[in-house]
């Protein structure tokens, strides 16, 4: 058992627990995006950052990947953490403003505008779908491809994967495109499935190229019938 202090509150947790789990146990809210129970921690979105250490020797770490240490001092919402977290939210907003999940997080932290060049990315590379496919669906149909700015998620050679069972798990967990594709005719679509304020899918010329790995899409099939 390991004893540590979170926001001044002493707690004892089992070895191997992450800071995020310990903080949740105590009831301290830490926002997360790429973390999901049942999936391996990945530490991609950095929303769950906390400050560890004391005095001048503090540092920022992602709580979902940091295992607890004996006598660790953790602050989950110090001013430094809040500043950094708001910046991360702004960056997320800059890349994918259409995401309901990101919008919710932004409003929770009172981030009303962002200062970066506005993009409309289909993917924030959080890796939730990849881990879902691998760990829960045991399929490994999709994965990361390329590197750097060419990094993307998809099937090998952009062909329909033999491993894919069309379970839809990847779309279920996606914070950006969740239930995006609810209709086959974009102009007639009343896209409310994702709760987005506007319809990202009809603004794209190539409807097929959106991050939908399901071919044929179960949702679309249902709408067709």
């Amino acid at each position: 058992m390991i004893t540590l202090k979170i926001n001044g509150l002493e707690t004892t947790v089992e070895e191997g627990t992450t800071i995020l789990e310990a903080a949740k146990f105590l009831g301290f809210p830490i926002p997360t995006l790429c973390h999901m129970e049942g999936l391996r921690s990945y530490g991609a979105c950095r929303l769950c950052i906390v400050e560890i250490g004391e005095g001048t020797k503090t540092k920022i770490v992602s709580s979902c990947t940091y295992p607890v240490e004996e006598g660790l001092h953790v602050r989950t919402s110090s001013s430094r953490v809040m500043r950094a977290r708001k910046m991360i939210i702004e960056l997320l907003l800059a890349s994918s403003p259409q995401s309901k999940t990101i919008q919710d997080i932004a409003s929770e932290f009172n981030v009303k505008q962002q200062r970066f060049r506005q993009e409309h990315e289909d993917c924030i590379l959080c890796g939730l779908c990849v881990r879902m496919c691998e760990e829960q669906m045991v399929a490994k149909a999709i994965g990361f491809r390329g590197r750097g700015e060419n990094r993307s998620i998809g099937t090998p050679f952009d062909k329909q994967s033999e491993k894919c069972r069309l379970c839809g798990g990847c779309m279920y967990v996606c914070p950006v495109c969740s239930l995006r594709c609810t209709y086959t005719e974009p102009d007639k679509a009343i896209c409310g499935g994702c709760g987005n304020h506007y319809v990202p899918c009809i603004e794209k010329e190539q409807f097929d190229d959106l991050m939908c790995y399901m071919e044929p899409c179960v949702e679309c099939e249902i709408s067709n019938d």
């Binding site: 691998e134 490994k140 994965g143 033999e162």
Partner: peptide, 17 residues
């Protein structure tokens, strides 16, 4: 899985598909 191999093959510039 093929996607893992493909990931490695696309990660390194040395490899060409």
């Amino acid at each position: 899985s093929l996607v893992e191999i493909y990931g490695v093959a696309t990660f390194y510039r040395y490899f060409s598909l």
